[in-house]
Nucleic acid binder design. Structure first.
Lengths: 214, 214, 214, 214
DNA sequence: GATGAATGAGGCTTCATTCAT
DNA sequence: CATGAATGAAGCCTCATTCAT
């Protein structure tokens, strides 16, 4: 989606632009982020940005894609060693903890995730989610399939429903602990990691009851 | 939250402002909504808005509160006649259908709900959700309690978790059928009501398995 | 076409804006004129201009209308005393001289006329000519009718053709003496008034031969 | 006027640049045409254009020259067979029809002619008309001389005036049928060819009365 | 209590031209 | 001779808020 120019760019320059973009879009969301600010922070002429991306939406979508790739890679590695075959739902809890930790430790990716999920502009949201969703599903789908293959998820379970619920709840778990006002019940934003872990345990349990074998 | 002036206003004038505000905030979300436009549509001086509300956020929060009240009232009435005592989860499906229908038939309340849930500005989002959440909970909490009282929800079920899941999924069910790109799995935005009803049935089933008595 | 605000404006402020607008549009034509410059020269906030006019085109059209009104008023007065009844074509020559003199002495109206007639943007040109043409015709039509009424223009002359030729040639006579490169044959831009007068005499003669009684 | 490099260019490359330039300048006029767009359409590096032409004006002037050459060649051939010696003014009508047809069938040359005649930038207009006018006159002058030689134009007619009028009216007849708002009286842009032909007949008659022998 | 004119910073985007490779 | 990345000024327009009337 970026223009060919983008790929031919000196890596150091490209990195400056990415860094500035991540910071700005993360801090203010798509609509209120300023390309002026990004250009200034990246020490790049305003017009240059438009040599690389057709418009603001395209730029945001690219950053979203990059971030989602990072998240996907990290999570793929983080959950690979877990004992899914023998303890699917325990591994799920652990995966949610890893998820929590990752976003706690990577505030920029977290902020971008928030920006992506809270975008109100139709066009921007569609572009950005189209870029991001495949990355989520690339991890989720095989994982759920694995659970079914190992006999821990019921053969007749509705996998679509499971995936849909994850797609709704994962961004929430990523963001809510750090964005005030998103979760008025658990108050995820006001608890420490240990307290949050209890929530993840409960959620895994809910999931087991709904989709797991008896 | 509105200034005292607001309440002393001629009702017809107040209604014009509310109507214009609902339309504008619904159409563009908080950040991109224009007070200029609202004043013009309401046939009211720009400055007047600031006689009634301290700022844009306060105005938005008030409209959100009003809308949530409408939704709460409607849903309370709609679900009262359902046979919760004898068929809690069937009633839940039916309630979700009513929920779907209400937002299908009331595009302005739906658009406001979307605006509220997708707002990226921290301050605005907190203000607005603080105004809205109590209305959701006012319906949800007694209902869940009722399910437990009638023995259809397990005595040891985690009611907080149940409420939290609802608070996450209800706005989604309200918005997703009409906002493109929110639900890439079920594709709620591309299905007719009958197809969506199947989703609600499945969700009730998930909920029964997680929280219901055996 | 201007917004109501425009008419309620303090006259002195309005005049400053008009003066700045005439100067800038006259100097650079519509497309290359800068609203920034106009606002600065008029000592008015950039945004204010948009309180008075919907956009750049509307602003330009208003200035064109004003200028055409000035020209119409001036010419109506200037040609009223001429002996049209007894010497139509002599009066025509004299009227063309007056026309020449007016634009020689009023460089801003001349520049605006040039800007109007040379505008390449379709939308702007249509808007602006719609505003201007009626003023030309308000003088031309009765005049030509007069010539016919007094028996100096043939009864069977094609008045439409006459009007059309005037509408084409009048702006040319207004502009060409002061804009280089428009008239490579007579070289109107390189001659003094007396030499130009010879051209007007010739043109009147052409006109007499085409449309006058024998 | 182009740099020497231009002539040494591979013809196919040169043609791509010409085609892209004609399309862009014709579509938007000189000021608003974009060299970026031209380079992209011609599949040529932006910088290359500046190897062939000193600047935008020079490029435009060259394209104008080319187009005028095409028009001149076409018209010279088209009017050669007409019976100027025996029916000068009938031939004139027919020539105007050919003129109309040519520009109806060659939208790019027409658009360029419009761009040339409506250019508001002094420098650009002078450059471009200097390039174009000789082509017009190369056809007009001998033709008018011919009319005089054959005794159909009066010996004492003012040929300069005749040429000047043509130079004003020919571009108008070329453009007005296809550019809205240029001709509010005849409404050339709203008529079909047959109706326009009536205008050309009338114009020839006007010309005959002014300059023809009795 | 109502008005609405004024503000001016800031929004995204486009452009002709240069110059190092 | 060709390339195309970089520039940065300038473009039009929008906005929430203030304040004198």
């Amino acid at each position: 989606m970026p223009k060919p120019t983008w790929d031919r760019l000196h890596p150091e320059r490209r990195d400056r632009i990415i860094a500035a973009g991540r910071a700005e879009f993360g801090a203010h969301g798509f609509s209120r982020a300023s390309l002026n600010t990004i250009a200034r922070e990246a020490k790049v002429a305003k017009g240059s940005l438009f040599q690389y991306f057709g418009d603001k939406v395209e730029f945001f979508a690219h950053l979203a894609d990059l971030s989602a790739t990072i998240v996907e890679d990290h999570m793929a590695k983080a959950i690979a060693p877990l004992p899914w075959d023998t303890d699917f739902f325990g591994s799920l809890t652990e995966a949610l903890c890893q998820w929590d930790i990752f976003f706690a430790e990577n505030p920029e990716d977290r902020a971008l995730t928030a920006a992506i999920n809270l975008e109100g502009d139709d066009q921007a949201r569609m572009a950005v989610r189209q870029a991001v969703n495949p990355h989520y599903l690339a991890v989720l789908i095989p994982l759920i399939g694995h659970g079914q293959g190992s006999g821990q998820i019921r053969a007749d379970a509705d996998l679509e429903m499971a995936a849909a619920m994850f797609l709704l709840i994962l961004p929430h778990f990523a963001i809510a602990p750090h964005v005030p006002g998103l979760d008025p019940i658990f108050g995820l934003d006001q608890r420490d990691f240990e307290a949050r872990k209890q929530v993840y345990i409960k959620f895994s349990e809910v999931f087991r009851l709904s989709f797991g074998t008896v």
